[in-house]
């Protein structure tokens, strides 16, 4: 991951209503600084995924502003959206790897489709695979890899373009606890190297142990935003 390139995200009075009139986000105000590590927690249907999709402009806010790198993403020209996405790496619960490509080729894919020179691809893919601890599994196909290994490939793909922001939607949701910790350690390393990380999760143990900033959501609202927080408030 490149040092120095750091993201900044700001949501101002953001509402999101889906066409079916479900209101997924209500007056969201949120500021994330460069180098932050933020957990977004809350019950199913709270609006975590919706919030994350607004950041890389998979979806657009119904009201309010979503600023990434100081720019309102809703105002981006259509041709500029790919450029925004190159600055944000995205990781999902279900990995979203291409089954007919090796680990190496899945990672190289992200560079190929952004028209990186062949020399760059040859240099960066092995380096990133080494960083995520998969140097020896480069030739393996997704079905030959464990869940944790697949998520590492997905992370490698997300960071190979050198994005300053990494968003993760329940990245450990399909993994057992030990494997989850491996992924968390990797994310923490990336964060120490300068990446801003926003991670939606249900993993109570992980959130409680890592003592990072916690944004808790419920019914589309932010109900708590706490530095070095925990998954849920103790009820006295």
């Amino acid at each position: 991951m490149q040092k120095g390139l750091r993201g900044l995200i700001q949501l101002v009075e953001v509402w999101k209503a889906y066409p079916n009139e479900v209101i997924a986000l209500r007056e969201i105000n949120l500021k994330i600084d460069r180098g932050d590590f933020v957990f977004v927690v809350g019950p199913s249907g709270a609006g975590k995924s919706t919030l994350i999709r607004l950041l890389y402009r998979e979806d657009v806010a119904t009201r309010g502003q979503v600023l990434v790198h100081g720019k309102n993403v809703a105002r981006l020209r259509h041709s500029s959206i790919p450029l925004l996405r190159r600055t944000i790496g995205v990781i999902f619960q279900d990995f979203k790897l291409l089954p007919d490509r090796s680990a190496h080729d899945n990672v190289a894919f992200a560079l190929e489709v952004t028209e990186a020179p062949r020399r760059e691809i040859k240099r960066r893919v092995p380096a990133v695979l080494e960083l995520v601890g998969l140097k020896d599994r480069a030739r393996a196909f997704p079905h030959e890899l464990s869940g944790g290994e697949q998520q590492r490939v997905a992370i490698a793909r997300a960071i190979v373009n050198g994005p300053s922001i990494l968003v993760a939607d329940e990245p450990t949701g399909n993994l057992d606890p030990d494997t989850s910790w491996g992924i968390m350690n990797l994310l923490q390393t990336l964060n120490r190297n300068g990446a801003t990380i926003i991670m939606a999760t249900h993993a109570k143990t992980i959130v409680n142990a890592m003592k990072k900033r916690v944004v808790a959501m419920d019914h589309g609202r932010i109900i708590r935003d706490q530095a070095q927080g925990v998954y849920a408030h103790e009820v006295n």
């Binding site: 996405r85 291409l98 894919f109 793909r157 373009n161």
Partner: peptide, 17 residues
């Protein structure tokens, strides 16, 4: 469609897709 989805996700331009 999955491949196209991933291409968009990692920032491929429409022309390239």
């Amino acid at each position: 469609r999955h491949e196209i989805g991933i291409m968009k996700l990692v920032g491929a331009t429409d022309g390239f897709i």
